[in-house]
């Protein structure tokens, strides 16, 4: 099985965790960040992961994305068992099959917006499909800012550049870690509408960690974590329902 394998058409599960457990520290002082989490992330859907601070939501995302390793359990991206990959294979997995949007510091300051967008392709020695690139750039509304460097872009624009970069390789999954955490509500809305658009129009799979009920309401499904365990799920969420659920979690 190659990490370069293209996503299969018929696949319905984009990623899967089975019995995922993550311990920090050892012995009595060990902290159980993830405690036997099992979940399947459906392909072509927008999944939000929520939970109070320390619930393990970020840890789950990092382990899913191959940035961190589980203490026990299994993570699969498509049919690929992430735990079995070497550092080099993990790098290629991230480059070719995954997309990332972080909360801050998403862009290389020396590169222009355009260069940042095509960076994963360039790292693989590939050129962007011009039509697809134009489509993504138009969708994030940055066609006139492509020659600018990150320092010349607003926070919202920077995050949209990051989103465009995450999509340009047509990845199996885009992982977004609090992508709107540092944005005002207007910029947040623009970014989230774009992510929703990507799911609806291109069938993109997105997994997003957030603590913002409004952000989570853009998802198809919300996964609630507490103390490293999945406590509930919600489909067709709205901000109000999520807020209620969060209150139930004690936040």
């Amino acid at each position: 099985m190659s990490v370069l394998q293209s996503p299969s058409e018929a696949r319905t599960v984009a990623a899967r965790v089975v019995g995922a457990t993550k311990l920090y520290g050892r012995g009595d002082s060990a902290v159980r960040a993830l405690d036997d989490v099992s979940f399947e992330f459906p392909a072509g859907a927008f999944t939000a992961i929520m939970g109070p601070s320390g619930s393990g939501k970020s840890t789950l995302l990092h382990c899913l994305a191959g940035l961190d390793t589980l203490t026990s359990g299994q993570v699969c991206i498509g049919d690929t068992d992430v735990a079995k990959l070497s550092d080099g294979e993990l790098t290629l997995l991230r480059r070719n099959r995954l997309g990332f949007i972080f909360q801050t510091y998403n862009l290389v300051p020396t590169l222009t917006a355009q260069e940042n967008i095509v960076l994963p392709l360039r790292l693989g020695g590939r050129n962007a499909d011009p039509e697809w690139l134009a489509q993504v750039v138009a969708a994030v509304g940055l066609a006139d800012r492509l020659g600018h460097r990150p320092a010349e872009l607003s926070g919202g624009q920077q995050q949209r550049v990051a989103a465009a970069r995450a999509l340009v390789t047509r990845p199996e999954i885009v992982f977004a870690d609090e992508p709107t955490g540092a944005l005002d509500s207007r910029s947040s809305g623009e970014l989230l509408r774009f992510l929703r658009h990507a799911v609806d129009e291109y069938g993109q799979t997105i997994v997003m960690v957030t603590h913002d009920p409004v952000a989570a309401s853009y998802a198809d499904r919300v996964l609630f974590l507490r103390d490293g365990r999945v406590v509930s799920q919600m489909t067709e969420p709205t901000a109000d329902r999520i807020l209620d659920a969060m209150k139930g979690l004690g936040e």
Binding site: R94, R95, F102, L107, L123
Partner: peptide, 16 residues
């Protein structure tokens, strides 16, 4: 450090 981490995250190999 952060920039290098970002580059590694989006698919830069150690060799690169």
């Amino acid at each position: 450090t952060r920039e290098l981490g970002l580059l590694r995250a989006v698919g830069m190999t150690r060799r690169q």
